[in-house]
Amino acid sequence: MTYNLNPNLEERLRNARLNAEVTPAFASRLRRALLSSRYYTEPRSLRFLHRVRRWLPLSAGALAAGFLIALLANLTGPPAASAPTILSVVNNPSSLQQLSNQGRIHYLAEQADGTRLYRIDLSNGTTLDVVDPAPYIMQLTHQ
């Protein structure tokens, strides 16, 4: 991009320059502070240690806060979903038969040991898994 700057504007810009200098007192005070700075007097390894020491409490605090938040979330949060567990072993074939007749029990699978696994739908929307330890004694009327 090429443009022409009128000499008048260029001169005006140059005339508008600030003609200021830092006061000698401030300049020497700042100079003294900079030159006696720890940057020159402190070994680099020590400086690294100072930096670590400054960040260590912050890191430890962040870690502790994270741990507390996780703990609280664990205590107050919803229970984790778990696989259905076998709560009881039913030894009363007649009760199983009765539930089957009412349509409240469903056959799920046959386990490795030959026992049959059933699931009962409870009224509050939960389910209960039961095992029939004496297979084949029940007449399944509802699947």
């Binding site: 443009y3 022409n4 008048n8 504007l9």
Partner: peptide
């Protein structure tokens, strides 16, 4: 600079009108 030209009272900026005194 174009905007500055409009803001300053006198005609200080000139696009492509004075190539001999221009600055690139």
């Amino acid at each position: 600079l174009r905007h500055l030209h409009g803001l300053l009272p006198s005609d200080a900026y000139d696009v492509q009108s004075q190539p001999q005194s221009g600055r690139t």
